[in-house]
Design a protein around this nucleic acid. Sequence first.
DNA 1: ATGATTATTGACAGCGCTGTCAATGCCGGT
DNA 2: ACCGGCATTGACAGCGCTGTCAATAATCAT
Lengths: 347, 347
Amino acid sequence: MTSAATINDVATMAGVSIKTVSRVVNREPNVSEKTRERVAQAIAQLRYKPSLAARGLAGGRSFLIGLLYGNASDSFLGELQRGILRTCRERHYGLALFPVAQQAPDLEADVLEWIRSTQPDGIILSPPLSDNEALVDALLKSGIKFISVSSAGTGRGPSVHIDEAAAAQQMTRHLIEAGHRRLGFVKGPADHVCSCLRFEGFCAALSAADIPFDDSLIACGDFHFDSGVEAAEQLLSGLNRPTAIFASNDDMASGVMHVAYQKGLTIPSDLAVAGFDDTPVSRQLWPGLSTVRQPIQSIGQTATERLLADISGVKNENSGNGAEPKYRRAESEILPFELMLRASTKG
Amino acid sequence: MTSAATINDVATMAGVSIKTVSRVVNREPNVSEKTRERVAQAIAQLRYKPSLAARGLAGGRSFLIGLLYGNASDSFLGELQRGILRTCRERHYGLALFPVAQQAPDLEADVLEWIRSTQPDGIILSPPLSDNEALVDALLKSGIKFISVSSAGTGRGPSVHIDEAAAAQQMTRHLIEAGHRRLGFVKGPADHVCSCLRFEGFCAALSAADIPFDDSLIACGDFHFDSGVEAAEQLLSGLNRPTAIFASNDDMASGVMHVAYQKGLTIPSDLAVAGFDDTPVSRQLWPGLSTVRQPIQSIGQTATERLLADISGVKNENSGNGAEPKYRRAESEILPFELMLRASTKG
DNA sequence: ATGATTATTGACAGCGCTGTCAATGCCGGT
DNA sequence: ACCGGCATTGACAGCGCTGTCAATAATCAT
């Protein structure tokens, strides 16, 4: 049996040189279809996996991509990692995690230091880090390739995300169509771009339905359960309480539901509740929470693919003229969302 | 300014061979104090950081530890990763993730291949992989260091976990003390050792309280929400329904609560519900779910520390006699759990 | 058919480091 | 002074892979 299949074994088996195997592994051009096929077969048969260390040493790359994240929720991170890892695995890349303390004063320095020591070939930025201008600036200046997920960020640098505003607007319209006129909204933290977009979508739906905006129906939260509780206590304490509350994420929505129960309200007949993110908890709550589903796994996958393309693009790029390297386009890719309508809004 | 200071630069600067620099970097013996000092200074001055890739290639070590996991829940993995990363970071180790398809027929081969290509210096096994005898055997035979978390596994190989049986027993006792006599139980998947232990704890508490065991009050699940729903439908459909249900994890407990609501039962007055794991959802449910909290982060941290100790232990170990290498002790460390009593059992 | 291109392939030299082993310097004992 | 023995050091050969570049095969224009 022996555990080690090296590039040599593959080359021997396929009857080619190791360099050709290397070409196949790296998807390089100029390999005939026939040869590629033969090599691919040998690779599969020997279950050959290239050694990251050797590739890194020889190629000057680390074959590592870094994932930077703050205090995002576990389910978000889990899904995201799944998506990223799927692409990483098929492209033989490794993933290096870097959880940062968002509130660290020298966040950029921390990140830069980590980049220097880990040497990832590219970086994926998860929210809210993608919204941190100083960080994005530092990254841009350092020249490292990066991409933001699930947030358009400040517009500089590429990203993969959904149309948050449209999603929020659509969910709000759903509420309005169910007959609600007094709609409460729980905002997310102000420094998240997506918080703002979700709020904008909410407002847009309101004005589209000619419902006047009522400031007393807006509360602020920080995306955590407890803040949802506080927000709901505020929104539901007045006499003229809303008949529906749209919280800008599921955790806060579950907080709203908690308070509703405490106050003896029945969901959805006394109060409809909607969330955002389709975290697992939204199914587990009673009644099931209507929410917006982002394809987080696909987002991670797509972002990784684009990042890797960007990385390998560099190689073929500098072969051309000696002109100034053109500034990388800050293209962003928008993936579709989906409304998950459950019992919490079915009134 | 140039970015890269290699071992050569350091060697030149210190006026020694690169091998000596290597010795200093690796804290190897047999370097005179004077030389060591000189080299250390050069290293500091040049801000030299050894290349992980090169060290890995040449030395067979990677300064990476691997985390193997199956379809564990995101919150579990998130917590675990946090704990592991904390230790990793301070010891300058990296973390490589390897999500495996549990049902893959050639799981061991997959894992071995991954080990070969990634070359982690040690591996952390999260449940239920730690319970997979074939896998543990393969790992044992391959000689790689590993440690299981949150599961005693099959008893071979070290592990860090809580006393699952005692925890389940204590939670059951809590239910009994609240006056319940007809206690339902939702088992986890049979191939998880911890499922069995939790069930054993439940049974032990029953017999300690002289409550006869009633097979019709036991249902089987697979740790997922839907299976909790099914189990509850089964348990709550009979005439003589239980007054309390203890599900062996939180997700299934939330399924039980769902069914209870559907049937118009009030929790906890009509039915008390308890879970296991203290996942975030247990707080968010209404009413709050009583559950058992494992210190997952600490488990991850402790496991990593022990794994690293084990790894560095090897180097100094084989310097001794030429006798047979003694079989590594399968020491396991038991961390304390905590009962989180919330409203779902407060009758 | 012939030379000119272009596509395909392989030989070879490292990447930065560590393991091995031989070389050197230094100690005490006689 | 001479020798064994140990502490210290360096020369050298890779680790498994990629980049470079030259060699060969295939294709095209004339």
